[in-house]
């Protein structure tokens, strides 16, 4: 019983982290038709920037905010200076983001070295929460809370603000949105920065659970891809549901069948692609 409860809580925390990563990827893909393969590297870059920031600012949340801003700045530069030059060339864009992800990953290796660097949870959250005979790290519950708050905030942003309305219009019909005067160019940069910021801050928030290590990008990117394939492109709800489904499967898979955890990930993907190629909540096909 205890095993099931603890693992369920663990998978909820992982689901929260995956959501922070995948929702940005999904939004960028949905709006701009860019499969941003740098996203895993941005997550890792965020974690490492967090490591350095924590040396000066001893507060994890502030570090996450700073890392999010810096990674967003990097994302904005990438979008403006390189991706913009390749507008309309979807293949070129995806290859460039792949190239940049290799550069970022190697840069992190040069600057922060090859050993994993742990990130400490805030002291107030280091004590476990004890209910009955089950002890559970408080920090993981907070991560879940952050993901839910982020999801609600993004939902309100998308449904209740002018910016959100423009993004939805762009996702549904780019040409029409342009024709009715949506400033698509500025919108692209905004969404790209937003996605990068979520990934960067997510990397810092993931720190106390995963720590920062080379290869974090390669571990997280496929999970995010599977979440988006499963949930559907450009859908907030899809990213949310997909993140938790994948996190539950991955966590229990790793605990029960550690050898084959990755193969088990494969199954929901096959089922969804076979019956709903657009993903569970996708509005149009990838």
């Amino acid at each position: 019983m205890q095993f099931w409860i603890v693992q369920s809580l663990n998978s909820l925390a992982l689901g929260g982290l995956l959501f922070l990563l995948a929702t940005g990827f999904s939004l960028i893909f949905g709006l701009m038709r860019i499969a941003n393969l740098t996203h895993g590297a941005l997550f890792m870059l965020g974690a490492y920037v967090g490591v350095t920031t924590l040396k000066f600012v001893p507060n994890l949340w502030l570090a996450a905010l700073i890392a999010g801003l810096l990674v967003a700045l990097f994302g904005g530069l990438l979008e403006r200076s390189i991706l913009r030059r390749l507008a309309g060339n979807a293949l070129g864009q995806v290859l460039v983001t792949l190239g940049v992800s290799f550069i970022v990953a190697d840069f992190c290796l040069i600057v922060w070295g090859g050993d994993p660097i742990p990130i400490a949870a805030p002291t107030s959250l280091q004590r476990p929460i004890v209910v009955g005979n089950i002890a559970f790290p408080a920090y993981r519950l907070v991560v879940l809370g952050i993901a839910i708050i982020t999801a609600i905030a993004l939902h309100l942003l998308m449904e209740r603000t002018r910016l959100g309305a423009m993004i939805r219009a762009g996702v549904d019909d780019m040409q029409m949105a342009r024709a009715v005067g949506v400033p698509v160019s500025r919108l692209f940069t905004t969404v790209f920065c937003l996605g990068a910021a979520l990934a960067g801050a997510g990397g810092v928030i993931a720190g106390p659970i995963m720590s920062a290590y080379p290869g974090l990008d390669a571990d997280m990117l496929p999970l995010a891809l599977i979440v988006v394939i499963l949930g559907g492109v450009g859908s907030l709800l899809g990213a949310f549901v997909g993140s938790f489904v994948i996190a539950i499967i991955y966590t229990f898979g790793s605990a029960l069948l550690p050898d084959l955890a990755y193969v088990i990930l494969f199954l929901p993907m096959i089922v969804v692609i076979a019956f709903r190629p657009r993903g569970l909540f996708g509005r149009r096909s990838t």
Partner: peptide, 8 residues
């Protein structure tokens, strides 16, 4: 890796 990315 960095060179591979840059060449890309």
């Amino acid at each position: 890796n960095m060179l591979l990315g840059a060449v890309f």
